[in-house]
Write a protein that binds this DNA or RNA. Sequence first.
DNA 1: AAAATTCCTGACTAAATTAGTAGGTTAATA
DNA 2: TATTAACCTACTAATTTAGTCAGGAATTTT
Lengths: 177, 177
Amino acid sequence: MRLSTKGRYSVTAMLDLAIHDKAGPVTLADISQCQGISLSYLEQLFARLRKSGLVKGVRGPGGGYRLARPASEISIAEIICSVDENVDVTHCKGEGNCNDGSKCLTHELWTALSVRLHEFLSGITLAQFVERPGIPELSMQRDKMIGRFVLAKKQAAAINQGVFNADNAVVNKELVR
Amino acid sequence: MRLSTKGRYSVTAMLDLAIHDKAGPVTLADISQCQGISLSYLEQLFARLRKSGLVKGVRGPGGGYRLARPASEISIAEIICSVDENVDVTHCKGEGNCNDGSKCLTHELWTALSVRLHEFLSGITLAQFVERPGIPELSMQRDKMIGRFVLAKKQAAAINQGVFNADNAVVNKELVR
DNA sequence: AAAATTCCTGACTAAATTAGTAGGTTAATA
DNA sequence: TATTAACCTACTAATTTAGTCAGGAATTTT
C-alpha cells in the first residue's frame, strides 16, 4: 500500500463530494478552484475513481460528479487503492526466492504491516469525517463565499461524535498476532 | 504523512537490523544483497536514519549498523518520518487562505486523517514484528544459507578475550544452532 | 605500521512518477 | 441551437526516486 499525493488529492476531492452530496453534483472545476489542483489532473484521477465505481459522472449543465454510494460505505482505503495501482513490493514477483533461494523474510514482515495499514484505512469512511462537529457549518460558510448555494438544515442536524472512536485502538492492539 | 518506497526500504532494512540485533552489526552490503537495493542508495537512507538517532554505525572490519535503541522503542512512524521529509500539504502554507479567504476545509480533514495514521504507525514497534512466532527461526535459517556465521564468529572472538563465562556460552550455543 | 573493511560524503545521472497542457468528443440542459 | 460539463487521448515539464561514481575517514585485523 502506497500513500502519495495522488491518493491525498483523491481523498480530499472525495471529501468535497461527500460534503455536498445532498446538494447535487460537484463540478471538477469547483474542486480545481477550491483545492488548487489543475482540472485535467483531476480528470485523470476521477477517471480511475469512476472505473472503480466510487463516483458517478453527470453530464451537461448542472452536472458534475457525485458519490456512487453513500459516504458511509466508502472507505479511505478504497479511494487510495483505486488511484494508486499497487506496485510489486517484493522484487521476487511472488516467486519467493529473493537472492538466496529461501523466502524473503523482511518482505513478508512488510507485507504484514501493509495489510494492517489497509485494514486500518478500510475502517475509516468518508461519512465519519463529514459528520464531525463543526464541519457542516464550515462547509456552508465556504460555499456561501464561493457562490454555491446548498443545503442548510439537514447537514447541520448531522452532528454526532468525532471521527475516530475506540475501534481503531482495538485494531492497533491486535496487530501482533 | 507520506508512504513511499523510500519509507518501505527503510522499514525493511530496520527490520533486518532488529532481527540480527543480538548477533552484532549488520553491513549495508548484506542488506543490499538480501533485499535487492543498491548499496549507495542504502547509504543515503541510513545517513538519515543515523541523523535521526535510530541507528548507530560501527566502523572497521566486523562493523556495520545496529539499532541505536531497543527494537521495542522504535516505531514504524519514526522510521518513515526520518527518511521522508514532510512536504507542505496545504498549498496555503498554513496561512489558512485557500483561494477563497476562508479556512480550507478538506485540507483540515486530510490533516486529521494524517494525524490518526501517524498515531497508528507510532503504536507499532519493530519489536512487535520481530518477536512474532517463527521469525527468529526463519532468520537464522536464512543467515545460514547466505553464509553469514556472525554469531559464531563473534562468540569465538569473545571467548578468546575471556568475556564469556560458561553460562553465556550455553545460551549462545543454542542461538547458533 | 599496513591492509582490510566499512562508514561517510557529495556530486552526478537515469528512470519513474507526478503534475499539468492541449485539443478534442459526447451528452444533457436551457 | 448554444452552452455546459463530463469524458477521452496524447503530449510535455517538473519533481522524485533510484542508482552510480569517486574519494575520503575511521577502525579493526594482520
